[in-house]
């Protein structure tokens, strides 16, 4: 086999022997030129065989020794991508007069990548589009939920820190469980918290009640809560149904899931509002 094959007459089979080396970029100039001239004839054997040879050659990448890029690389790359996505977002958002957040446009851009990655399989593409949609919706819901939780936490912190808040200890007659602590701020609301409180049986919950000062007044039902696995809970009542001045005491009972319109058990904790 000479290096300069421009004048060589070869059969398709002979050219076929060069395809893997061509796909690797290992052919010398003469062979390469001869093969390219042959490929230009759209040889029905060599053209598809070359496509498969390219796939085969790409598999050699797996033979490289395992190596792991640093986390810093990932951090740098994602930072650049996030910044570019953020810069791109306002332009797209203005054009579309849409309130869609930038990350969603980034998701669309990413979808393009994913689409490119798999678009030879239309069904898979469809699944991925649905998946991205679902994730975008879930992300929106999750963000709203997080924002609500953040707002609640901020309000709780303000109630606990405000010197105008009234501290109310809710004592219990059961020695094995500790007391609850309530902080009631006339403007911001009421926070009740407990630690190491046993979880009610089954799906039952703890329910807060406001006991009115008015003679014969019925306990006003408030919110319900279930302590977490560690027995901790924080209950925020942003808008208590009664003014603090009109409330004699707070009480907490064990109630069925969802709470009750009136207490069905004896209060476990009670604390007077001074």
């Amino acid at each position: 086999m000479s290096n300069d094959l421009s004048n060589d007459v070869r059969s398709g089979d002979q050219f076929g022997e060069l395809l893997e080396a061509y796909a690797m970029g290992a052919l010398d100039a003469g062979e390469r030129a001869a093969l390219e001239a042959h490929l230009a004839t759209n040889c029905p054997d060599c053209v598809p065989a070359l496509q498969e040879a390219r796939w085969l050659v790409s598999q050699l990448a797996y033979a490289a020794p395992e190596a792991v890029p640093s986390d810093m690389l990932r951090g740098r790359l994602m930072k650049i991508v996030r910044e570019e996505a953020a810069r791109e977002a306002p332009r797209v958002a203005v054009a579309a007069k849409s309130a869609v957040p930038y990350w969603m446009w980034a998701a669309v851009a990413a979808l393009l990548l994913v689409a490119a990655y798999t678009s030879w399989d239309a069904r898979q593409l469809q699944r991925q589009i649905l998946d991205v949609n679902d994730r975008a919706t879930a992300e929106l819901r999750s963000r709203e939920k997080i924002e609500e939780e953040l707002a609640a936490v901020r309000r709780e912190a303000r109630i606990l820190a405000d010197p105008e808040s009234v501290k109310i200890a809710l004592a219990t007659s059961q020695p094995e469980i500790g007391p609850l602590q309530a902080n009631w701020n006339a403007k911001l609301g009421l926070v009740v918290s407990g630690q190491k409180i046993p979880q009610p049986a089954g799906d039952r919950v703890l329910q807060l009640w406001l006991i009115p000062k008015a003679p014969g007044g019925k306990p006003l039902p408030s919110q319900t809560v279930r302590p977490d696995a560690n027995g901790n809970f924080v209950l925020l009542v942003a808008n208590p149904p009664e003014l603090m001045a009109e409330t004699k005491a707070l009480a907490v009972t064990d109630e069925p899931a969802g709470g009750s319109p009136q207490p069905t058990t004896t209060p476990k904790w009670v604390g007077g509002v001074s």
């Binding site: 990448a61 490289a64 020794p65 190596a67 690389l73 990932r74 994602m78 991508v81 998701a107 994913v114």
Partner: peptide, 22 residues
């Protein structure tokens, strides 16, 4: 963005291994 991250996480070792070998 998340899809891109997944794409990176899925293939970065292979790509890096190849490039580092070269």
């Amino acid at each position: 963005m998340r899809a891109f991250e997944q794409l990176y996480d899925r293939h970065c070792r292979l790509v890096y291994g190849l490039v580092f070998r070269i």
